[in-house]
Design a protein around this nucleic acid. Sequence first.
DNA 1: TTACAAAACTAACGCTTATTCGTTTTTAAT
DNA 2: ATTAAAAACGAATAAGCGTTAGTTTTGTAA
Lengths: 196, 196
Amino acid sequence: MSKIIPVRNESKKETISKNASKLFRKKGFSATSMRELAVDIGVEASSLYNHIGSKSELLQIICFKVANDFINQINELEQIEIDVTIKLEKIIRFHIHKMLEDYDMVYVANHEWKHLQEPFLKNFLNQRKLYENKLIELIKIGIFEKSIKKLNPQVLAFTILSAVRGLEFWQQHKKNIDIAELEKTMVTQLLNGIIK
Amino acid sequence: MSKIIPVRNESKKETISKNASKLFRKKGFSATSMRELAVDIGVEASSLYNHIGSKSELLQIICFKVANDFINQINELEQIEIDVTIKLEKIIRFHIHKMLEDYDMVYVANHEWKHLQEPFLKNFLNQRKLYENKLIELIKIGIFEKSIKKLNPQVLAFTILSAVRGLEFWQQHKKNIDIAELEKTMVTQLLNGIIK
DNA sequence: TTACAAAACTAACGCTTATTCGTTTTTAAT
DNA sequence: ATTAAAAACGAATAAGCGTTAGTTTTGTAA
């Protein structure tokens, strides 16, 4: 008989979630079977149900963990009194670090959330919209304070989010690009542009 | 008995592909069943196989149609002798227009390509890399000519691609944002930055 | 050592899946 | 009206799905 062995001080549920993140990212939520997940962990599929409620629950855990991390960060940022442009820079850098640390989970939250069941789907999209709106508000302040160009704040926000959400590419080029250069380049491009 | 009725001068295969694009986008490739697709078209699932070879073939058609469109555009652009920054602007605008015209197909090509079977998967990724490399080369020329800032060309290229690939958000905000403003804002942000 | 709970196992359920088969209906050309 | 091809159908297939039930093994504490 095999066993689920949690690494470090993780619970077994966390171990399963981590493995699920990896598979959901690689194969997609729908194309990943509980039997595959079980093989990956080294246990029978039915044994997983001693620790989790359902396949769907795994997706919930992943998506809301990520959503909360981002909401928390932007909430903290709101409290601090620094220039808007510096806040934007911090947000971009946070996205880059999250994508580095929790690649699988962030990827799944970005790409597989549509397979959440109600009411979790609505809930997740509300969280997302909340985050987007906070970013838009930040940009509006910047425009008001004349530190940011007078452009459509919604588009500016979505472009930043699209750019950082697309950071998956970085995983495949880890060796070529070092993280400090990545950060510097993206922050410069998104905030200052690329044309001399 | 029902029938597959092609609109305009499309073939029936094209009609099926269009419908498949819509469903693959909404539900994902794996979560879309041939029965659902059949219902959408108004026919029995088995009847589809008079026109297509397999579910997988539908994904191939979609992904390679999109890949070819983008490759063709950047190839044409290579021939023209205009400033690099104007080429970049044209590329960004082309992405915006494609996302507007063929939303479902472009979305599927961007998000569901991983479900392609070999050798199509490798083939598609090669096409993608080819496109990315052409964009990187363009940026390198710009840096050499000193019209573009000396930053990591790979990161610059991927950030632009991430930003335009994320243009899905626009579909949900069609009413609020008009396309001319969208184009202007994104081009300005990505090329000139947002800070005054 | 005994006893209990946690967590593994095997086996199965009911359902859905993509696809195939043989047949019938429809369409279009002679 | 006759014929042949195209395209629909219903039924069936084999495989895979998430999940449950009942049972056995394992780990822990008295």
